[in-house]
């Protein structure tokens, strides 16, 4: 399984929060062969199970969220324009002149409007338009558009991917489906009898709206222990006051307040043992990830959080490094096959 291709295939799917079920078949096609079971639960979580083949084996949860930030249609205007609102924390600075796809009866291409400077009202020279003030230009008449698009239809960034130097790539929705691709590519490389237990790979829903899916899925699975994967901000020049991990530093092992310190340290040891590059980040408050909710589910699920460094989060041109992705893939392999961790954390 080619990691880069898997990343691009998964991230190119439309999975704006609340629409995680739409791509079920596509998802099954891309990653289904790696698993024994695929199930979609009422919250739109995708559970994929890879069995180890042993009775009463521990349940190992590897979670990453399937949903991506995006928009939603709020109105259809004369001239073939739509207005929209945010689903999750979209970076509104990147919208104007950007390209989107409205997922109506069929995908409808659109350009986000911008107003030329000489048509702007005085005093607005440095004001940033809110999302609600922008239009998506579809090139259709209102009448035709109304047959294609309905209020509430999801709107996503047009999937455009490109390569930068040093095996870095840019595009939409690496947050967090790229982590899922790493997990799947890793699990594809290990056989059932190498697994330390049954692996539940959870592509959870509605993380961007407050970790809604992971809580119910974790309750449904009740794993023995869990590894949560998500992206994290990589070091950028304009943020000096946080010790962010640079690109190509490998996996970020998060010593996060709501997670299990012992499990986290065992993961760190795994990285050392397998020579997987990593940095450690201290995360004293909310992690902003599913690690906030999975641990405190059911009778408690010891969990750890590892991240992939990413730049320009929640934009249409997020940047990740394939070297870091490779490291995360190796970590997932090491974690899923670690009998040491299973011995300590199995119920």
């Amino acid at each position: 399984m080619n990691l880069k291709q898997t990343i691009l295939s998964l991230c190119g799917l439309m999975s704006v929060s609340g629409n995680e079920k739409v791509a079920s078949q596509e998802l099954e096609r891309i990653i289904g062969s790696v698993f024994d079971e695929h199930k979609v639960d009422p919250m739109g979580n995708h559970w994929f199970v890879k069995k180890c083949g042993r009775e009463n084996a521990p349940k190992i949860l590897i979670d990453t969220h399937f949903d991506e930030i995006g928009m939603m249609v709020t109105d259809i205007k004369d001239g073939g324009f739509i207005t929209m609102t945010s689903v999750g924390g979209v970076d509104t600075r990147i919208l104007q002149s950007g390209e989107v796809v409205i997922y109506g009866k069929e995908p409808v291409y659109g350009v986000v409007s911008s107003t030329a400077p000489h048509f702007r009202k005085p005093g607005e020279s440095d004001k940033l338009s809110t999302m609600e003030e922008l239009y998506v230009d579809t090139g259709y008449t209102k009448e035709t558009l109304e047959t294609l698009v309905s209020l509430g239809d999801p709107v996503g960034f047009k999937p455009v991917y490109g390569e930068l130097l040093n095996d870095r790539i840019f595009g939409k929705a690496f947050d967090a489906k790229s982590c899922g691709a790493c997990a799947v590519a890793g699990l594809a490389e290990i056989s059932a009898d190498e697994l330390a237990g049954d692996v539940y790979f959870l592509f959870s829903s509605e993380e961007e709206l407050g970790c809604r899916g992971a809580a119910t899925a974790a309750f449904g699975i009740v794993p023995d222990y869990a590894l949560i994967l998500d992206v994290t901000h990589a070091a950028v020049p304009e943020v000096k006051n946080r010790n962010l991990s640079p690109m190509e530093s490998g996996v970020v092992v998060e010593i996060a307040a709501p997670t299990d310190r012992g499990l986290t340290l065992m993961i760190k040891d795994l990285c050392d043992a397998k020579e997987i590059p990593y940095t450690v980040q201290a995360c004293p408050g909310s992690t902003g990830t599913n690690a906030n909710v999975i641990g405190m589910t059911a009778d408690g699920i010891p969990s750890a959080l590892c991240s992939l460094p990413l730049k320009s989060m929640h934009s249409s041109a997020e940047v990740i490094s394939l070297k870091d992705a490779e490291a995360l893939k190796e970590l997932v392999k090491a974690f899923a096959t670690s009998n040491e961790i299973a011995e300590v954390y199995a119920r």
């Binding site: 924390g89 970076d91 490109g162 840019f170 989060m313 929640h314």
Partner: peptide, 10 residues
């Protein structure tokens, strides 16, 4: 290739 980067909204 390049992108005009922006500090993440967060």
């Amino acid at each position: 290739r390049g992108t005009i980067a922006s500090k993440a909204i967060h």
